[in-house]
Every structure is written in structure tokens, then in C-alpha cells.
């Protein structure tokens, strides 16, 4: 199984290392030609969504990746990645893939002094230590989304079909539970579908 990590800006290496620890092969997507490789799943890492979104478009990867996600490619998004997937943003006119029916607020917890760590329970995954770095917030999710986790009554993790969206950073911890969940419950499940 080969996992493609969007590598235009941000913490993509951390995502690659996490998946490699689970025995997955990873490739980096930095430009259009990189899309010619075969891959089974897509990872949108943390970083700055404004930079990633701009480079996705200007380096010629946007439309291709958008249709792959729409056609059911398993996709895991953390932090900035959630902003790239969101259907609407409450505080920014820039939108990107819009494949995930949620509304998201950017930098919802304030600036870096508002960044925090919180332990909590994720549905189907279990206890997890969550790192929130200038994190966005999922304000509202369509009923078709499965809510996997909340912190202080705010949604921090959702699954919608083959898309997994997390406003925190599982790739910054040694705990691989979220990555394992993605591989086992989303990538494999889709694979075995007719």
C-alpha cells in the first residue's frame, strides 16, 4: 500500500515517518509530475493552509487531487489539511477542495499562546493525547459525518466516507493509533469494496 503525502509545505516528514513505522510505503507530492506515480491514499499534513492551498493550485495538483478525493480516495487531513478539505470557512473567503461537508474556523483558539495539549477519547480509536497548534475548529458538521472526537464540546475529529479530518496533530506524538485506524478502517475498507 502506498501513501502519498502532500509535501509542498509543513510537517509532511512527520506524517511520512508515522506511516513508515506502520510498514507503509510513502511518496511525496511536490509538483504535478509526482501525481503520475501510483498511490492508494492521500495525506494532507499540518502547516499553513494559505501556502499549501496556493501551491496546490499553482503547481498544478489541485484539480487532479480534488477529483481523486471526490472519487473516494482515502484521505487523512490534519490541522491545515482540514481547512483544505472544508466545505466552508467561517472566517476566510479562501476555500479549497470543499469535499468535506463541515464548516471550519481558522485559528479558532487564537494565536500561538492559545495552542494547547489535551487528552481525550476518540471514538473507535481510544484515549489519545492531542496537540493543538494554532488549530482550526470544526464549527458544524453535516449529519452524514461521523464525529470521532470532541474537546470542550467542540468537534476535533470527523470521518466522512473515506475522509478523516483531525484538527490536532497525531503525527507529532509517538502514538500511532490514529494512523493505524486510518490504514485499517479507511484505506483497507475502501480497498475491499467492490
Amino acid at each position: 500500500m502506498k501513501i502519498a503525502v502532500l509535501a509542498v509545505q509543513g510537517a509532511f516528514l512527520e506524517q511520512e515517518k508515522a506511516f513508515q513505522k506502520l510498514g507503509m510505503e510513502t511518496i511525496e507530492l511536490r509538483k504535478k509530475e509526482d501525481l503520475e506515480a501510483d498511490f492508494d491514499a492521500l495525506v494532507l499534513p499540518g502547516g499553513e493552509s494559505t501556502v499549501q492551498g496556493k501551491l496546490l493550485k499553482e503547481l498544478g495538483m489541485f484539480q487532479d487531487l480534488k477529483s481523486r478525493i471526490e472519487n473516494g480516495m482515502p484521505t487523512m487531513a490534519t490541522c491545515a489539511g482540514v481547512i483544505l478539505l472544508a466545505g466552508t470557512l467561517t472566517n476566510d473567503s479562501r476555500t479549497y477542495f470543499q469535499t468535506l461537508p463541515v464548516s471550519v474556523t481558522r485559528n479558532a483558539y487564537g494565536r500561538q499562546l492559545g495552542s494547547f495539549y489535551q487528552e481525550g477519547v476518540l471514538k473507535e480509536i481510544g484515549n489519545f493525547g492531542m496537540e493543538f497548534i494554532r488549530a482550526p475548529l470544526i464549527e458544524a458538521a453535516s449529519p452524514e459525518c461521523t464525529i470521532l472526537g470532541t474537546v470542550n464540546d467542540h468537534v476535533v475529529a470527523v470521518r466522512y466516507r473515506s475522509q478523516l479530518a483531525l484538527t490536532f496533530h497525531p503525527e507529532l506524538t509517538d502514538d500511532l493509533a490514529v494512523h493505524r485506524y486510518f490504514c485499517q478502517n479507511i484505506v483497507n475498507e475502501i480497498d475491499s469494496m467492490p
Partner: peptide, 23 residues
């Protein structure tokens, strides 16, 4: 946000720099 230990605050600060990488 919850009260953070100095170690955790430092970890979060190092992690913000990780998010800036490649930029």
C-alpha cells in the same frame, strides 16, 4: 485551554516551528 507544564509549552512551541518547515 488547560494549564500546561513548562515542558508541554516548550513542546508546543517547537511544534509550531515544525509547521513552518518547507516554508
Amino acid at each position: 485551554r488547560p494549564t500546561l507544564t513548562k515542558q508541554k509549552q516548550y513542546a508546543l512551541n517547537k511544534e509550531l516551528a515544525q509547521m513552518l518547515k518547507g516554508g
